[in-house]
């Protein structure tokens, strides 16, 4: 009897979360060279972020922000004590680079998560609601979409003073939801026509229940896909802000490192300082972007069909 119940629970889990489909999806994802490269890059940066806690423990002079090598008063090329060299204040560049990975993950994932939650909610409401709600929400989305997010955040920084990293994250999220909500809206519109929604309504489900129990699970994969793309844009906007000198002065991000090398005029003298942060920003955005594209192929059967047709 207990065995039967267990079997039933297992079946229910498999049905709800579509485990078999997920496994198939994973196989497809891993088959794709783009997805594989992205995955390995991401693991590499994840290790960097974890390792960022180690250098300050080894020696306080490796602290990315406050640690200064007493014997060094100018930017120095890589050496045994400083694997990637130091900046003009004698701070260790390797340790700064590791910390930058942590900040990039923090900014990227939290901003992307917020904008996805916002975009999915607004998209579902717009798609499910009537014409007026839909029209109003989508016009609002259009308006935010034409605003250059980086420049708006700059303007806000000038009006409201120095922004800390969390305000920057919230602002990035706020300017990045419209793209998501458009996609989710169109998916919701087509889901709305399916019989199971009518059945739920006839069975007496409230609008909220229909949206969260019947529509949400169906649009969730798409939302997750867009999250990977949003991570890249959030990392880029934060890095650009920091590069222009409007980042949080209490954090060490890769954009910040580039600003220091640029503003202190070391860009022609210190390639060991100019190259690593730029390569890291480019590669971490590339990794999320590649994962997103590989996921897109898994989620969108049309793209797969083309693949098969071509072979």
């Amino acid at each position: 009897m207990a065995k039967l119940a267990k079997q039933k629970i297992k079946e229910k889990i498999a049905r709800t979360y579509n485990l078999q489909r997920a496994a198939e999806g994973w196989a497809l994802f891993y088959d794709n060279p783009v997805g594989k490269i992205g995955m390995f890059l991401l693991i590499f940066f994840g290790l960097m972020a974890v390792a960022s806690f180690i250098p300050p423990l080894v020696n306080p002079m490796y602290h990315p922000m406050t640690g200064v090598d007493p014997g060094i008063s100018n930017a120095t090329p890589p050496s045994l004590t400083h694997w990637l060299g130091t900046d003009n204040l004698g701070r260790d560049l390797f340790s700064q680079l590791l910390t930058g990975a942590r900040i990039a993950f923090l900014v990227g994932i939290s901003a992307a998560f917020m904008s996805i939650v916002l975009g999915t909610l607004i998209g579902m409401v717009a798609g499910y609601g009537g014409r007026i709600t839909d029209g109003l929400l989508m016009r609002f989305a259009d308006m935010i979409m034409v605003m250059p997010s980086l420049l708006v955040v700059l303007l806000l920084a000038s009006l409201f003073g120095q922004l800390n990293i969390w305000i920057i994250v919230v602002l990035i999220a706020f300017f990045r939801w419209p793209g998501v909500s458009r996609v989710i809206r169109s998916q919701t519109l087509s889901l709305k026509q399916r019989p199971f929604i009518d059945m739920a309504r006839v069975a007496g489900a409230s609008h909220l229940r229909i949206i969260f129990r019947h529509i949400l699970p169906n649009v969730l994969p798409m939302a997750f896909l867009y999250m990977t793309f949003r991570v890249t844009s959030a990392i880029i906007v934060e890095a650009a802000l920091a590069f222009l000198g409007f980042g949080d002065p209490n954090t060490v991000s890769w954009g910040m490192m580039l600003q220091w090398v640029w503003k202190t005029g070391h860009m022609f003298q210190a390639p060991y300082w100019l190259l690593p942060p730029g390569i890291c920003i480019s590669l971490i955005t590339l990794s999320f972007y590649m994962i997103g594209r590989a996921m897109e192929e898994v989620l969108d059967p049309r793209l797969r069909r083309e693949e098969e047709a071509a072979q």
Partner: peptide
Amino acid sequence: CHTLFLPWIALL
């Protein structure tokens, strides 16, 4: 190309 960090590539 699409994911290169623009200010960095400009400096480069």
